[in-house]
Amino acid sequence: MSAHHIIPLKTLLSTTLALLVLTVATVLVFYINIPAPFDVIVALLLATFKATLVGMFFMGLYYDEKFNTVVLIFSFLFFIVFIGITLLDTMYRDSGIGVW
């Protein structure tokens, strides 16, 4: 039953509006020139917030069986592990790989 939830029109439209506002915010943050590394952090936080909105309301995770959300969160965690283990290697080399 929950899988067939009809998402209210108002929810879809306000999600879109929020995404557009956040896109404008992302571009504005770029022009403010926040010192590195905070510029990347702010940009990624905004992007993650936008992705969360898309996931919850456009993809319907908010109304769905929670297991689908678990799958998404795990894919994100595995991705973090992927990044983490790779950086443990590449950040602690004396020099990079030749061509790179």
């Binding site: 940009a43 936008k50 456009f58």
Partner: peptide, 12 residues
């Protein structure tokens, strides 16, 4: 929507 999400990260 996933294609959209990937672009949301690629853009910044």
């Amino acid at each position: 929507h996933l294609v959209d999400i990937i672009w949301i990260f690629l853009f910044p």
